[in-house]
């Protein structure tokens, strides 16, 4: 009896330690986020203001959505490089349509439809023609960016009184008399939260989600287990690219304009968020909520570097190094896990 219970204890101890190993990167991301906040607060004193948090979320709602969008393919060991370009093409089309007097809801629907079409195209290329995900989405990225450039290379501004306002209008919860201490949010943030909830439910509460993890573990095993791998792959790129269109709506509404170059390099920001958030680039492990933390870490780099007086040119290098550190960390963690 006693021996049985001790082995049981051992087992649970072993289990929790294993889970820890998987979660190290995610925990590290949370720790880094807090450290950044503490450092920012200590040095500049503005990082715990409610206003800081409000703008962090409002300004980066789009990145949170993109991070969720990127999490799905990365979980299977794939990638969706087209997200930034999808933001560009949908933004340009959406704003152009609104400028032409078409009601915003219709423009938004068209934006979503464009996202869906590109997602479907990526799915077809990957599943029907055996293209590697990063090549297929690199192609759709160029296609989307190119078409956006054909449509317009000007900076397009949303007309006054457009119906994009409802997304970006700030809603104050706490109206603090002190400067920049209001707690507020907008529909963009709400949409981002909904997307996160959607991602969470999809991955953890549906069979499709479990299939996504199974593909990440071993695609051939998933196939031999009779899981609908092909259909799931289609869904992944479809949802991922459609979410990029959603991110585009949120972003465009926020800044009120669009250009064909918008979203350049955002695929990297999204990958950074996902990787920092603990999703392993070879697939199989990771969490949507981790990606959200990753997106916040990525978001806070901008104010930090500018407060430190670091030239903006350095930001990309910092982000690059950060992805690198986390990818290396993943390697180490998985290598240690294997040795055990």
């Amino acid at each position: 009896m006693t021996s049985a219970s001790t082995t049981a204890v051992k087992k649970t101890a072993k289990k929790s330690r294993r889970l820890d190993a998987q979660m190290i990167p995610t925990i590290a991301a949370v720790v880094i986020f807090i450290l950044m906040l503490v450092m920012g607060q200590a040095l500049f004193g503005t990082y715990t203001r409610l206003g800081f948090f409000s703008s962090l979320f409002i300004d980066h709602a789009y990145l949170i959505i993109l991070a969720v969008a990127m999490t799905l393919p990365v979980l299977t060991g794939g990638i969706n490089l087209s997200v930034g370009a999808i933001v560009a093409i949908t933004a340009v089309v959406g704003v152009k349509m609104t400028m032409a007097g078409i009601p915003a809801p219709i423009a938004m629907i068209v934006m979503i439809l464009i996202g869906m079409a590109f997602g479907l195209l990526a799915g077809v290329l990957i599943e029907e023609f055996n293209m590697q995900p990063f090549i297929a989405t690199l192609a759709t990225m160029f296609l989307a960016r190119g078409i956006a450039s054909i449509i317009s290379t000007d900076s397009l501004v949303l007309p006054e009184d457009n119906n994009f306002d409802w997304v970006s209008a700030e809603i104050k919860i706490i109206d603090n008399p002190k400067i920049s201490n209001d707690l507020s949010f907008n529909m963009g943030v709400v949409i981002a939260v909904l997307v996160v909830i959607f991602g969470y439910i999809l991955l953890h509460k549906t069979r499709t989600g479990r299939t996504i993890y199974a593909i990440g573990g071993s695609r051939s095993s998933a196939e031999l287990m009779g899981l609908p791998v092909k259909r799931t792959q289609y869904l992944i790129y479809f949802i991922s690219t459609t979410l990029a269109a959603v991110a585009s709506i949120v972003y465009t509404a926020n800044i009120g304009s669009a250009k064909n170059t918008v979203g350049t390099g955002w695929e990297l920001d999204a990958v950074a968020a996902v990787v920092i958030g603990g999703t392993i680039v070879t697939g199989g492990f990771g969490y949507v909520l981790g990606s959200v933390v990753g997106a916040l870490v990525r978001s806070i780099i901008d104010p930090l570097t500018s407060d430190f007086g670091v030239p903006a040119e350095w930001t990309t290098i910092v982000v690059g190094l950060m992805i690198l550190v986390f990818v290396v960390l993943q390697r180490v963690v998985s290598a240690v896990g294997k040795k055990e």
């Binding site: 990958v271 990787v275 990309t316 290098i317 982000v319 690059g320 190094l321 992805i323 290396v328 390697r331």
Partner: peptide
């Protein structure tokens, strides 16, 4: 380190652009 080529060079693509800007101070 055995990192995946596309991730590694994606990082370099990003960081390299930054480095070019750093070299010329933007």
């Amino acid at each position: 380190l055995g990192l995946q080529p596309f991730i590694t060079t994606l990082i370099m693509m990003l960081a390299g652009r930054g480095l070019a800007k750093v070299i010329t101070a933007g």
